[in-house]
Amino acid sequence: MNDGERYATVSGPRQLRWAEDAPVDLPAPDGVVVDITYTGICGTDVHGWTDGHMLPPAVFGHEWTGTIRAVGDGVTGLAVGQRVVGGVGPACGRCRQCVAGHARQCDTVFAEANGVDAAAPAHGAFATRVRVAARRVLPVPDGITDVEAALVEPATVTFHAVRRVGMELGSVAVVQGAGPIGLLTAQHARNAGAGRIIVSEPSEARRAAAQRLGFTDVVAPDGLAPLLQDVTGGLGADVLFECAGVASLLQPSAELVRRGGVLALLGFPLTPSTVSYGDWQSRELTVIGSLAYNHEDFVGTMRAIAQGRIDVAALHTGTIGLSDLDGMLAELDSGRSTHAKVLVDPRA
């Protein structure tokens, strides 16, 4: 491969457009150029590829790590050769949310997380190189491997969700779905002090992955209600983390939560859901939606990885080259893949 910049974008339903530009090392004054080491394939990437138009260009390939190639003249605290992950900047202090005192809901950070801010890169990191604003990269601690760094972003999504819930110590928590998001959520919930964690997952391979991570209460969906009945004496879960993103599961999931408990929504359904408003109201459920993350969530996640408090490398089940991306997206969309998290190595 020459030193040009090669990258993939979605051009239509199940279609990729490949482009190769001449190498340009000059970043914006407040930006950096990063050589990509690995990019993780996310369920969002798969949905965006199958749909053909739902994702902003910067989001297709948003789980990435790399090495800084060039630094803009106005950038401080970053250096050429430094390992970084893609993320979001600190609260801006200027948007309506920040000015109103709601810095955790900063509009600038939310736009960055969704790839729609004014400085969003022209394409994501299914690429050999990306140019991004310096505020969007975070240095990788020495104790984190490149593979672990490539998994920081999904681990941060789940860190953010568990942090938002703020569960009480000793809580009975249910994690519904044991894909990458569910397995990471379960680990963060364990760190957050859950007293007992039940993982529900239809796939035998994913149930085995949960057990390898040290979770013992791992069941198929039809075994969840009986086990929860036994564990809680019929009371229900203190917290249920819905990580499957299946619209039809929303009301049945809520019914597994005790009166006054918490339903936390991480999975993102692509179709409307039907729920019982009266049920949620009469049982005084707290429903917490979670999307993306804040800058401080990245910092906390990398600390947890560096200290061995969560195992992200266990989710890595394969590495492919850029030229294999189309085929892997099709495999992951088929529902028959045994992969958990696949990384793309643009050097392969």
Rank of each mutant, 00 (worst) to 15 (best):
L285F: 12
A292V: 12
F268Y: 11
T286E: 15
E296F: 05
M302K: 05
T286G: 13
V312M: 02
A314I: 00
M302P: 03
G321K: 07
T317E: 04
G318P: 00
P272G: 10
G300W: 01
G308I: 03
V287F: 05
T319G: 04
Q307G: 05
T271L: 09
A314P: 01
I305W: 03
A304F: 10
R283F: 14
Y277P: 05
Q307S: 09
L270C: 09
T274I: 14
T271G: 06
L315A: 01
G278L: 09
G318L: 01
T274W: 09
E296S: 10
A304V: 01
Y293L: 04
F268N: 06
M302N: 05
R303W: 11
R309V: 00
L322K: 02
H295M: 10
E296I: 04
A306D: 09
E284A: 15
I288T: 12
I305D: 01
I320V: 11
D279H: 15
L285R: 09
A292Q: 11
S290I: 04
A304E: 11
G321I: 06
P269A: 11
T301W: 02
N294E: 10
N294P: 01
T274S: 14
G318D: 00
H316R: 01
G300S: 10
T301F: 04
A313D: 02
G300E: 05
T301K: 00
V275W: 11
L291M: 15
V312Q: 00
F298G: 00
D279M: 15
E284S: 15
S323R: 11
V299T: 07
I288E: 06
M302L: 11
I288L: 15
A304M: 03
L270T: 13
A313W: 00
G318I: 00
V299N: 02
P272W: 05
G278E: 09
E284D: 14
T274L: 15
A313Q: 01
S276Q: 11
D297Q: 12
G267R: 02
V275A: 12
V299W: 08
